[in-house]
Design a protein around this nucleic acid. Structure first.
Lengths: 185, 185
DNA sequence: TAATTGATTAAAAAAATTTTTAACGTATTG
DNA sequence: CAATACGTTAAAAATTTTTTTAATCAATTA
């Protein structure tokens, strides 16, 4: 219909990619990844494996930036080192399976969150018990300790729930339990 | 046993609180909240309703910091304005229900993420179609357009899944589907 | 094994974010 | 209704984070 030239068509393809790269980068912001690492991921998402120099050429940034960016993406398990035959430079490829990313990312994060907080709660409760059991103290003081103890106790079910959710996610159970079709039941 | 003085006991209680406040603040870091707003939340978590001046006294920071911090917490739905009789100053209280926080936070985030990306994908695919349908272009060019189109198509099930998950979380279905007891099945 | 190429680390520069001080506007009370 | 107290906005300062340039380290190849 509109009869593109080859150059126009290629620019149009790049433009289409950029729309999605932008949106992926904005999303990754929410996952604690800087905008530039997010853009790097988006770029890799559409390419095959890439060298640091190819990344730098695409993004117009320095090589150390690419190096640290790739490392961050590797930490997040969304980029992997690959081997390209006859290529001296290292190459990296983006993980395109978002289900895998979601499972890895949130199961780790939630497990860590639950453990961290439960540990702090347990330490705090043990310390509070010393005050609670000391009946020589004024009522106001040990009542306060009891109140704090109680608040902490009431938060535990949440962290247990979070641990269970993380385990369900890790095992794949949660992925399977939710439909991935457009229509919702 | 160890027979505290009142002062020692009160310091010990505060120390116990601080352990948990620290850990809550570190957690909230993961949710995109600055450490100081996280610490503010942790402080409010153990108190009843507080005025900005009370917060400032506890945290040793400026009042505008408290004002913006509270606003951030209100945006996150973890702090609410309250009315204390005979109190001219505004008072605020922390939401202690972490289940509610989790549901609100992630259902909103995931819904937003899915919509944002699906919108970008649809725009990109429409633009790619112009190139794909233009048979006057060299094969290499429209094949590339088709490849990108295909990659985007394959990502859609993930976003539909995420939309469904967000809806399940919003409705309370997900909270109920996971046990909140310590032992895991 | 020397020379060269590529990747990473260190230090400096730049940019962005957070915090504070100061000014302003609004509302409450005497 | 004037005076004062409170909260928020604006601008400046301080801090933290990100990015780059420069230097170093490691590895490949001739």
């Amino acid at each position: 219909m509109s009869d593109f030239s080859r150059e126009e068509a290629e620019a149009s393809i790049q433009n289409a990619k950029d729309l999605v790269i932008e949106s992926l980068a904005e999303t990754m912001d929410l996952y604690g990844v800087t905008r530039s690492a997010g853009t790097l991921y988006g770029t890799m998402y559409f390419e095959g494996d890439m060298t640091l120099d190819e990344m730098r050429a695409q993004l117009g940034m320095s090589k150390p930036s690419m190096s640290t960016g790739v490392k961050k993406l590797q930490d997040l398990n969304v980029a992997k080192k690959t081997f390209r035959r006859g290529q001296r430079k290292h190459t990296y490829i983006a993980e395109r399976n978002f289900f895998k990313f979601f499972s890895d990312f949130f199961s780790d994060q939630w497990k860590r969150e639950a453990n961290l907080n439960l540990e702090a709660i347990n330490k705090a409760q043990m310390q509070l018990n010393e005050t609670i059991e000391d009946r020589s103290l004024p009522e106001k003081t040990w009542k306060e300790a009891e109140k704090v103890h109680q608040i902490l106790e009431e938060s535990k079910p949440y962290y247990y729930w979070l641990q269970n959710l993380a385990a369900m996610l890790k095992s794949g159970e949660l992925i399977d339990a939710v439909p991935s079709s457009r229509e919702q039941k």
